[in-house]
Amino acid sequence: MFIRETITKNKMTNKSYKKHVLVESYRTENGPRQRVVMQLGTLTLPKSEWKKLAAALEGRLAGQVTLFEEEKEIAEAAESAMANYSFNQKKVDTKKQRRSKAVYASVDLNSVSTGESRSLGPELVGHAAWQQLELDQLLDDCGFSPTEQALAEAAVVGRLIAPSSDLASWRWLRERTALVEMLSVDLSHIGKDAIYEIADLLLSNKTDIERGLRIREANLFSRPHQVFLYDLTNTYFEGSAKKNELAHRGKSKEKRTDCPLVTLALVVDDAGFPIFSQIYEGNKSEPETLKDILERLNKDASLEMAGNLPMIAMDRGIATKDNLKLIKEMEFPYIVVERRAVEKEYVEEFKEAKETFEKITQPPTVLPMN
C-alpha cells in the first residue's frame, strides 16, 4: 500500500486543496489495478514519512502493530486515520444492513396523489419566536391554562402566517398547518368557538401581555429608545355591532362611513417594536387621544424611557394647539408636521442659512446577536 496525493481546485474561489488517500494495488484478469482503501484527509506529515504511515496503516488493517508506530508522530497519524476509518466503516455497514432489510413494492407513479398536506416552514419561525419570547411563561403568569397557552400560540401565529377571520384561522389550524404538531397540547379536534374565546381572553390581558413583551424585547435587543411613533387608524364592522360599546359611526379611513367603526391607536419605537396599543370609540377625535397616550407612556413605559424621554413623532392631525401645549408641559420632545403649508415662507431664509449648517454623521448601531 502507498499514499497518494491529489489536488482539487474550487472554480468559484480559485483555491487549490490537497487530500490524501491510502491506495492498494491488486491483480485482476485484465492486469494490475488500484483501489482506494482509506481517505486520509489532508496530511501534515512530511512526504518522507508517508511510506512509514502507509506501512503502519496496512498493519493495523491486518490486525498488527508495526515497528514504525514506536515513532510518536506516525502513531498519532495512524490513530487519527483509523478513528475516521472506523466511523465511516460503521456508516457503510449500517447502510448495507438497512438495504438488506429493505422491503420493496411496485408503485404506479401515474396513480400517486397526496392528501392532508400541511405547511411547515413559516410555522417553525413563528414557533421559535414564541419560545424565544417565553410567551408561554408570560401567559402562565396571566393565569392561562396549558390548553389556553397552546390556543393563544395557534391564534397569534395563524394571524401572522394566514391573516383572516377567526373562523378562517380555525380552518387553517385544522386543515392546512403543521403547527398543531409543535404545540404542547393536541388541538387537532378543537372547536371553532375556542378560537373566538382565546381572542377575547388575550384582549382582556392585553395590558399585562404588552408590558411583558416590552421587557422581553428590551432584554433581547438592548438599546436606547430615542423616538416613539404614534398614529391612529380605524376599521369597520360589516354588521350592526349593537352590543359593542366602542362601535360608532364616524369618518372611515377605508371610505366605509356606512358602517360602525372602532379606532386603533399604536405607539412603536424607532425600530418598529410596539410599546403599547389602545382601542377607542369609532367616533373618537384623534387629538383627544394624545393626553391618554402620554399618561400611559409615563405609567406603563417608564422602564423603556429610563429617565430619558423619547421624541414623540406624530402627524399633523394630532398637533392641535392644546396638544402641543400638553406635550411641552409634560416635557416630551416632539416632531410634528405643520398643520398648514408654511414651507414656502422659509425658502429664502433656508437658502441663506444652508451654508452654515453642520452635517452630523453617526455610525450605524450594531445590535448584539443572541
Rank of each mutant, 00 (worst) to 15 (best):
A199L: 10
L138D: 10
E69W: 06
A129P: 04
S165Q: 06
A77E: 13
Q89F: 02
V125W: 09
L326W: 11
E349K: 05
T13M: 09
A301I: 04
F273C: 01
A150E: 09
L120V: 13
V103M: 07
L160S: 05
S204Q: 10
L229D: 08
Y26I: 05
P46S: 13
S188K: 02
H127S: 10
V262F: 01
K344C: 15
L183N: 11
T6A: 11
W130M: 13
A313H: 02
V267L: 07
R340W: 14
D208H: 09
S119H: 08
T177C: 04
R256A: 03
I190T: 14
G126K: 03
T42V: 06
A152I: 13
E295F: 04
L160K: 00
V185Q: 13
T147Y: 11
S119E: 14
K15T: 08
N283E: 14
A247V: 04
E331T: 13
S188G: 06
I195S: 08
D193Q: 12
N10Q: 09
I360G: 06
A56W: 04
A162R: 05
V103D: 07
D140T: 14
D186N: 07
A129M: 10
A241E: 03
L45F: 12
S188Y: 01
E5Q: 10
V37L: 10
E69A: 06
D136T: 14
A265I: 03
V65A: 00
A75W: 12
V366F: 02
R33I: 02
E352D: 10
